[in-house]
């Protein structure tokens, strides 16, 4: 189990730092997180305290990954342009519009 956890963690780490695009990085981070949580289970499988730790850490990681996914999607949607009929997307009104500056080289979301 510890070997599997290490491999999962390393694969996630490589894809996070080498992968292109916001979505690739979020997926890589999620795989890394899975590997780290598997190490908890590998240490003391079946122990209630271990599963409690995994639960606490896992829930907070899910929250952060959800926010990261949402940000990545906003970047992708903003790169693709406005919604049909010129209306702002729901995400744009939820967090506030992303004002359009002149083009620059920091294009994270463009294909």
């Amino acid at each position: 189990m510890s070997v599997v956890a290490s491999v999962v963690f390393l694969v996630g780490g490589v894809s996070t730092f080498v992968g292109r695009g916001a979505r690739g990085r979020v997926i890589g981070l999620a795989v890394m997180a899975t590997g780290a949580l598997l190490w908890f289970v590998a240490g003391a499988p079946g122990a209630a305290a271990t599963w409690w730790l995994v639960g606490k850490a896992g829930v907070t990681l899910l929250g952060m990954l959800a926010v990261a996914t949402w940000l990545a999607r906003r970047l992708r949607d903003e790169a693709r342009g406005p919604a049909p009929h010129g209306r702002p997307s729901e995400d744009a009104t939820a967090i506030g519009t992303i004002r359009q500056p002149p083009p620059d080289s920091l294009d994270e979301g463009r294909p």
Partner: peptide, 11 residues
């Protein structure tokens, strides 16, 4: 509520 550069930096 910021511009794209701030959004990228925060991400």
């Amino acid at each position: 509520g910021g511009e794209r550069r701030r959004f990228l930096a925060g991400t």
